[in-house]
Write a protein that binds this DNA or RNA. Sequence first.
RNA 1: GCGGAUGUGGUGGAAUUGGUAGACACGCUAGCCUUAGGAGCUAGUGCCCUCUGGGCGUGAAGGUUCAAGUCCUUUCAUCCGCACCA
Length: 814
Amino acid sequence: MKRYNPKEIEPKWQNVWSKQKLYAAIDFDKRTKYIMLTEFPYPSGDGLHMGHIREYTYGDVLARFRRMQGHNVLYPMGYDAFGLPTENYAIKNKISPQEATDKNVATFQKQLEEMGYSIDWNRSFCTSDPRYYLWTQWLFLQFFKAGLAYQAEIAINWCPHCKTGLSNEEVINGRHERCDTLVEKRLLKQWLLRITDYAERLLEGLKDVDYPSRIADQQKNWIGRSEGANINFYSIDDVKKNHPITVFTTRPDTLFGATFLVLAPEHPLVEIITKDDHKDVVHSYVKQTQSKTDIERQATEREKTGVFIGAYALNPVTGTNIPIWIADYVLGGYGTGAIMAVPAHDERDWEFAQKYHLPVMRVIKNDDPDEMCTLKPGTMINSGDFNGMKSTEATTAIISFIEKEGFGSKKIQYKLRDWIFSRQHYWGEPIPIIHCPEHGAVAVPDDQLPVELPVLERYEPTDNGESPLSAITDWVNTTCPVCNSPAKRETDTMPNWAGSSWYYLRYYDPHNNEAFADKPKLEYWGAVDLYLGGMEHTTLHLLYSRFWHQFFYDQGLVPTPEPFAARRGQGIILAADGSKMSKSKGNVVNPSDILDSGYGADALRLAIIFLAPYDQTTPWSPESVAGTHRFLQRVWTLVREYIDTKPSTKEDDSDELKQVIHPLIFKVTTDLERLSFNTAIAACMQTVNDLYHLKAKDGFTATNWEWALKTLLQLISPFAPHISEELWHDLNEEHSIHVSPWPDYDKTLIVKKTVTIAVQVNGKLRGSIEIERDAPEEEVIAKAKEQPKVASYLKEQIIRKSVYVNNRLVNFVL
RNA sequence: GCGGAUGUGGUGGAAUUGGUAGACACGCUAGCCUUAGGAGCUAGUGCCCUCUGGGCGUGAAGGUUCAAGUCCUUUCAUCCGCACCA
């Protein structure tokens, strides 16, 4: 018998598929289009890791499934090449980032091909290719022209290790998400994108897409919408009311209980309002705060600190003078950077008031004791005309009142901040802006795009917050596109999230030199049907690309309001001991080692999918590949034995084969629809076991066997494309199994004619009986009573009740 | 603290609506076979007992029900995201 040798058949079929362009997606094809998108990889020097294998195998299984169902499937792949790791890798290996990228992309491509993924390679690209980033730059300029890209001198998160500024999304617990270094605050002139203008849209859009709640909720949480009011207070010395101290509050109902104000130490009014005799202590407090990193500010969480600035403000509704303090528990970056403190109804204010002996005024009466801080609603007290009102109603009433009186207004506040878009690094898209002394920031004209990255000798990041590009004077010095006078290029580059914010659109039309994508093609392909990716990108890439896409939609550049109709997030593969795989721990499992060991891609594909449900994080088990290899070996033997022995030609009048295969078609089809890959494979294993048993009975015609085996191979083919293709051709099929139509099931054959009924006595299983499906209840109960073991329990007992569940069980209650 | 999830054999995991808990695999045990292999085949494998029978069993404790892994209440543990967000 021909042996199963994955090392031989896998490359063979990969070549055939590639020559036949079997997986090419066809623009404007009449079949229904289906875009199966997986996140494109960052081509690091380490090659593919298990997470890639998991994600792309899931994507490939679904792509193959949809293709066989008759869809015009686009399953694309590209490379997200700009960014710090490549730059660091290049510096370390003393090669240019371009070279490093080319080298790494080649490795990735080879590995992806070895896995047998049904990718349309003709549509592949790399974000660091000038033909691609020309359009990243062009799209950035659309933001700029619409006023959504702007420059500002702001305190940003600075990673001292990577020597670059970071967006808020890139900072995790005060550390840079990539290198885990503590971030510092630095004041730098930065480019920002007004993602906050899209806060409401990003929330609203979630209603129109199919995202699991854990993804949608995480985005909602990140956007952090809260309703309240902005209220203006004035220092009692500010008689002309030149400097309103605006506070944001979600509890306007507690306005009468505001007994002091707290400003963030970095609040711009601090310097203006502070009394001269308090300036020393205020300055030193401000200085002390600035020297703290966010981590240190959080470490002092329990012990709140602050200083009185010597000034008082007027509470506009009570007419009392309330002291103004500064404290670092008030954040400069959220709301207005100032709060009205209501110690009776806010725990933080309460804590602060206790420590510094500040007055407390209870304005809501409820079950909680009067001398305590309470967050619960209740009845208004000490609140003038609002007394006696329910606090929940007072919120809107007080907002109306302050709006009428002109010292405040309703306000919706978001936690989301504008996206810091500048990076002070070499390996990124140059921001296509020219700074003219006369005209300020000017867009590079379209015909001068792309602004190519100059080839440099040295591209190490600098410590001074300037991009290495700033040292290239003949590149920096240019002329203003408006007035032709000497001007300077912007030297910051874009974050690595830029290229990935729109990459999926480029797959629709990857070779277009006139536009980022052709309109009719954008119309044809529409939204991505299913996007698989990692949970870690929920508030980074996924949010960013939704923002870009929504903006493009507003500009008439794309036909759909949302980029991804459905999104799912797969779980992480951990090391065998349940810890995270990491280079430093040395517990990284390398997929190419598994391939090289001779098991082959099919066994690895099955193993990683069979391991656990799609969205579950789970430890890798090294033995699992041996198990799935064994299964494939059994499939191979089953089919090859049939071919080699050409079995009996006996008449077959039973439905036994059909009753094994049709339920399997049903099971695999429905499981793939609901992304339950592991159970689909389990069902295939079960069926192979069943077929071995049926084979021993030897009572089937060749036609029926051949039908059963071919159907089995078709159902396995999305998971194990090589072995199924090989055996399919061994069974004398001419065309590829992967373009054969997905088998249909006969509804009447997916259920057995007889069913096993469990018989319980007092809810305990005592036996089982075989009956015809849908037999009448009386007949089943009568038969159940006769079951010997059951009968012994029923003897000399009175049956109080008999419960019958159709085709499932009988329960006698005594 | 807020938001989301998860707890089932030695292990990974099954159990679409309340209806035979442990499918499928890994591992293990015994036997067979052999070209001694990363084999293959057969049987067994939740725990306990006085073992042709019976009891217990889905993190814990209650509850609803003829019937609960599944529903309700309380609680514990773990993981992920956010976190002094006013």
